[in-house]
Design a protein around this nucleic acid. Structure first.
Lengths: 185, 185
DNA sequence: ACCTGAACACCGTTCAAGT
DNA sequence: ACCTGAACACCGTTCAAGT
């Protein structure tokens, strides 16, 4: 028998995300997570003393970090930079739709604030004043979260006239960007 | 002893909303709900055969109906009409913040679609073309849901520079409205 | 230090039984 | 028709015990 890999906080959270992505948030239980890691559920508490609460907090943070890793940079126009930032964030939220309700619940209050600061930074570099950048960043983040929620729910709904969500996203984003521009003048 | 009021679907869902508003979604259990109604938990299944699933669906629908009842009407300018619609919806979501995660999860897929249609109707009456009205309605609804999530989470976060959420909401809404106007030209 | 086994309180739900 | 009581499978978590 090859000796099992040792349990770590990161391995636990990645396994949890895998369960959430594959089976949904409702099927993430400590016992099932233990099974996936080939360990008794109680072993998890050694690495996450606050138990499931800490696990869910960790999921939210982990998804935020994934975005920091993949976010594209370097476009010339600030609008292009915002566009690619927003598209990457949208893809992340839709890919990990199971964590969306966690973002909305009271866990890990700081995570969303961090993301908002990250958008504000892009806007500040683009020439927005400090306070306008923060306000616009919150506007954009609110839209991105809400749109992901709408899109995920809308995609599983069979309507007579199906929605083109890619197009919807682009259109909404243009509305936001031109509105932000107007607010600057 | 006065004979107990008979159990009805509506009484059950109202009691459930009361628990969610007062103690949070996590404390809504069938047994606690039974206690609040002075009935055994199992009695609830007679009125909601699909059990807790149906109860949570009912909560989402019920909050949507609350909005239909309270929504203000009759302003002259379409922007004013959208503004008051949006403000009422925002107040509703923040007042019943506990149901927000339910809106985002896979239950009751039709509820959000109904709300989107209701916004689209306001826009259509304001002179938007059919397809533009639906697109803009989804943009607005996405923003409203996301903003409620951000606001609820942000309010419980003690930051050095606290956010004025009323002002943030107004500013964001103006960005959206002027962006929607630009898209029409 | 890291993991296990048994136990506890609580959950949603089924089902036969009462009125 | 409407509600209850007992039971079942499953939760999260504690804690003493093993290595």
């Amino acid at each position: 028998m090859s000796p099992r890999e040792p349990l770590t906080r990161d391995r636990i959270i990645e396994a949890a995300l895998h369960i959430v992505d594959g089976q949904g948030l409702g099927r993430l239980t400590m016992r099932r997570l233990g099974d996936a890691l080939e360990v008794e559920a109680m072993a998890i508490y050694h690495h996450l003393p606050r138990g499931k609460e800490e696990l869910l907090d960790g999921l939210v943070t982990h998804v935020g970090v994934l975005h920091a890793d993949t976010r594209p940079l370097g476009a010339d126009d600030w609008r292009d930079r915002i566009r690619s930032w927003a598209e990457a964030y949208r893809a992340l939220l839709v890919d990990h739709a199971g964590v969306l309700p966690l973002l909305v619940t009271r866990r890990n209050p700081a995570a969303l604030a961090t993301t908002a600061r990250s958008i504000a930074e892009v806007l500040r570099l683009a020439g927005f004043l400090e306070s306008a950048a923060h306000s616009a960043a919150r506007t954009l983040l609110a839209f991105l979260i809400g749109h992901a929620a709408l899109e995920v729910r809308g995609r599983e709904l069979a309507t007579p006239e199906p929605v083109d969500w890619d197009r919807q996203f682009e259109e909404s984003l243009e509305v936001l960007l031109s509105g932000m521009l107007t607010a600057l003048l």
